[in-house]
Amino acid sequence: MPPRPCGSLPQTVTISFSYHRHACSSGKRYSMPIITIQQGPQPVERKRELVQRITEAMVEAYGLPPESVQVWIHEVPADSWGKAGQLTCDK
C-alpha cells in the first residue's frame, strides 16, 4: 500500500474530559466539563456539529447547563504525529 499523502486525515480521534467546579451567580455549584478532542484536520462544518452534539450529550447525561460545557479541538496533521516509529503520513 502506498503511503498516504502528508496532511491526510489520521484514523484516530482521542477524547478526554475533566471537570472543574464553578459557582454561578445564584451560588449553586456545578461541574464545568472540558472535553478535549485530538484529531486530524476536519472541515469547520463537521467541527460545529461535533461541538453541538457533545454539548447536547453532556447536558442530557449530566444535567449541566449548556453554557458550562467546553469543547476544545486540537487538530494534528498527519506529519506531526507518529506510531510505531513512523510518522502517520508515512504509513
Rank of each mutant, 00 (worst) to 15 (best):
M1R: 06
P2G: 05
P3V: 02
P3E: 04
P5W: 03
P5A: 14
C6V: 07
G7M: 03
P10C: 14
Q11R: 13
F17K: 06
S18Y: 15
H20K: 12
R21A: 15
H22G: 04
H22I: 11
A23F: 11
C24A: 11
C24N: 14
C24H: 14
G27I: 02
G27N: 09
Y30T: 08
Y30Q: 13
S31W: 15
S31D: 15
M32H: 08
P33Y: 09
P33M: 09
I35H: 04
I35C: 10
T36P: 03
T36N: 14
Q38K: 15
Q39M: 14
G40C: 03
Q42L: 02
P43C: 12
P43F: 09
V44W: 06
V44H: 12
V44G: 10
E45N: 04
R46A: 08
R46D: 02
R48C: 01
E49L: 10
Q52T: 10
I54T: 02
I54G: 01
T55K: 01
A57T: 05
V59N: 00
V59H: 01
V59Q: 01
E60F: 08
E60P: 08
Y62R: 05
L64M: 05
P65Q: 02
P66Q: 11
P66N: 07
E67T: 01
S68I: 00
S68T: 01
V69W: 08
Q70M: 09
Q70E: 11
V71F: 12
V71K: 07
V71R: 07
W72K: 08
E75V: 03
V76Q: 08
P77S: 12
P77L: 03
A78V: 04
S80L: 14
W81G: 00
G82I: 08
K83D: 09
A84H: 08
A84L: 12
G85Y: 00
Q86G: 03
Q86L: 09
L87V: 11
C89I: 09
D90E: 09
